[in-house]
Design a protein around this nucleic acid. Structure first.
Lengths: 225, 225
DNA sequence: TATGCACTTATCCAATTGGATTATAGTTTA
DNA sequence: TAAACTATAATCCAATTGGATAAGTGCATA
């Protein structure tokens, strides 16, 4: 059985071209088209639950109601429907908002026809939402650069356990990072300069570095402090 | 010119198969293989900066030091190197940790040889980190289900003019902070070791410090970077 | 044109750092 | 108890770093 699809795009030409692309594939059945978010939601209201589209291809910038708003409303009203963004925009802000609104996938229009139909079809074999490669990387960067916490996990510091420095070694690393020499570290902790040095060298081994600067860099970058 | 690659995997057979795959492609040059994170970091330490691999394909579960730890350390020590996870694991926890550790891409081993080499090659044409489709969707879900906030716009650097470092000096400070020696700085900027040193000493005078560690501390604390 | 500034290179020397090794004492754990 | 780990300390050696100083180039500006 074919996959039922809805297309939401304010440009009639876009809708038609896309419709053609999908029709040619053979496994897709376009059962609804709308020209903006409001139009889409109104048309969805009139559809019997059993007749709802399985997938909605949603443009983002549209008059009256944009794609993000339409996805936010639609994904609440019709939880079983998968909303896939199909747009030319690839800026972090739009990607972020669309995902937060409930987007199941995010495709770029400059993808080839084969790639788009291919990824949509793949979605049915794997169950995973389709994401254009370039978008995937941007989402990865979102995770990398932002304050995201695993909901279930008890906020276990990703670091901390990386390198198992002893308490004493962490203490010495802290002083090292402040710019103290072996002698100063020794004086501060009331141990001999030689011992301070021994600790530092041990830290280097554990961190796999061989200079103060590298150790500091690692400590700062990975928040070992 | 071919792309230089490092492979880190505890199974010799995996390393060899992958090596063959990449070699057959013709554009990849495997310049380093290691059997775990520790082995990898030790081998990296012995390599001249100019000879570092451009891409590291990193397995995750390994003895001694796992891939996440190796990426965490490696991405700090060698910021220019791109770490791409290549593993059989696709659970959210591992994906999340690897990304947070600094992974540039995330590929699944059950991808076909063509897909893996293809995605790696694509990375060179688009500059975007390679991400397997299934992984992309899981990352999307991470963003969707978790507390993530868009980073605020870059805070204005009130400092900056406090110490009037020249552009060249800032350039050198940046390398210094990454842990490079005089020699490495010289090589990187195509100037003599002596010149590199001269610049560093000049920077010390302007910052009123007298060691790398103090300069780095200041740079980090005052956000000179 | 002269003066100053940034960038470059070099040399000499002292101090610090990094690496390897050995050794003792206390604590934890198998 | 023996083995393993941690903290302490010292020594020797090589390499790197920090400091001072001198000097040539090019560029901009007064």
């Amino acid at each position: 059985m074919p996959v039922s699809i809805a297309i939401v795009d304010d440009k009639a030409s876009n809708r038609n071209i896309l419709k053609d692309k999908l029709n040619r594939h053979g496994h897709f059945d376009i059962i609804l088209t709308a020209e903006d978010g409001r139009d889409f939601l109104e048309k969805m209201r009139l559809i019997e639950p059993a007749e709802l589209p399985e997938v909605v291809l949603m443009d983002l910038e549209m008059p009256n109601m944009d794609g993000v708003a339409a996805i936010a409303a639609g994904s609440s009203l019709y939880p079983s429907v998968k909303f896939v963004v199909l747009t030319i925009f690839d800026d972090e802000d739009k990607i972020f908002k669309a995902i937060k609104a409930g987007a199941f996938g995010y495709l770029l229009k400059d993808e080839s026809a084969e790639d788009i139909t291919g990824m949509l079809w793949q979605m049915y074999e794997s169950g995973a939402g389709p994401v254009s490669p370039g978008i995937a990387f941007k989402i990865l960067q979102l995770v990398q650069n932002n304050n995201l916490t695993m909901i279930d996990k008890p906020e276990e510091k990703v670091q901390e356990t990386f390198f198992d420095l002893t308490d004493r070694e962490k203490e010495i690393l802290a002083l090292l990072v402040q710019g103290l020499s072996y002698k100063q570290i020794g004086t501060t902790l009331n141990i001999s300069t030689n011992t301070a040095k021994k600790h530092v060298i041990n830290i280097y081994h554990k961190l796999h570095v061989n200079s103060r600067a590298q150790a500091m860099n690692l400590a700062y970058e990975k928040g070992l402090l």
